[in-house]
């Protein structure tokens, strides 16, 4: 999101991509630099995950271009809701599977040390032998972040990291990501959560098939951009210097009810 080519990791220029002949994203301009922390906000089907796939290279644009810095190390964390929690796999097995370059079935001593280090860094020390389902929600999310970090990425892509989690866990994840970003890791995450997550991020991209807004939350989270993104009216309040988004439905609904109630009372 920073200007200039220095430290630029990924650049999309007029990229249009999708699945089969259906375009999901149209004419996307987007750039990402080292240490960026960007939230991609938009309704379901707006192309958030497709944008992550375009950055990763698993979706090829049929117009425009996606350029990545040569030898860029990327890692992807899927939505935990899409994980098969019944799969017979321990925390250690889940994390080590991302390590490339060794073909043998068993891990080397240095690999085991690397896994131990990354588990320790994420507060999962001593849980390596546990089945992934036997962890708390926050620990489960951190296992998949650990798997991503084992690749020593420069760019971390996360799909809906706070989907379906409670407030405490959302705070925990946000703090963890903030810590990782402060060590130099660039992060791009997708989210539906405007108030709980997006408003707290340094940079946002609003998406609805195309980019409807990009920049700092206070510049992007405006009624006009949100209506263009979600196709619904929203109000933006300010609380402690942060934008708070309120669904416009309630106020409009109330406004429509008042005249009807007044008319009903006036009727004989």
């Amino acid at each position: 999101m920073r200007s200039g080519a220095d430290g630029e990791l990924v650049r999309l220029d007029g990229a249009s991509c999708g699945y089969g002949s259906d375009p999901v994203l149209v004419d996307i301009d987007f750039s990402l630099s080292a240490r960026d922390f960007v939230g991609v906000l938009g309704p379901s089907g707006s192309g958030k995950t497709t944008l992550l796939k375009a950055i990763m290279g698993t979706v090829t644009p049929f117009a425009g271009s996606v350029q990545r810095r040569p030898a860029l190390r990327m890692a992807y964390v899927p939505q935990v809701e899409t994980v098969n929690w019944s799969f017979p796999i321990s925390v250690f097995e889940c994390v080590i599977m991302a390590r490339r370059g060794r073909r043998l079935a068993w891990s080397s001593r240095s690999e085991r040390a690397d896994v131990a280090r990354v588990l320790d860094r994420l507060g999962l020390n001593g849980l390596g032998e546990r089945h992934i389902r036997e962890l708390s929600g926050g620990q489960q999310q951190r296992v998949f972040i650990a798997r991503a970090l084992l690749r020593d990425p420069e760019l971390l892509l996360m799909d809906e990291p706070t989907s379906g989690v409670d407030v405490r866990l959302r705070h925990e994840i946000l703090h963890l990501l903030d810590d990782l970003n402060s060590t130099g890791l660039a992060i791009v995450l997708t989210t539906h959560d405007v108030n709980g997550l997006a408003a707290h991020l340094p940079q946002l991209v609003c998406l609805n098939g195309r980019v409807t807004g990009a920049g700092r939350p206070r510049d992007v989270l405006t009624p006009a951009v949100l209506e263009e993104t979600y196709g619904a009216t929203m109000e933006v309040l300010q609380h402690a210097g942060m934008p708070v988004i309120v669904d416009g439905f309630h106020r409009r609904h109330q406004a429509a009810r008042v005249p009807r109630e007044t008319e009903a009372k006036a009727a004989p």
């Binding site: 899927p78 599977m97 490339r100 073909r103």
Partner: peptide
């Protein structure tokens, strides 16, 4: 085959999309 492709097979079986994105 399984011994020399253990991790790739495991990754592809457990999480094919991420495996693909990771270069498997």
């Amino acid at each position: 085959l399984i011994f020399f492709n253990y991790r790739s097979l495991l990754f592809t079986t457990f999480d094919p999309e991420v495996a693909d994105a990771t270069g498997v």
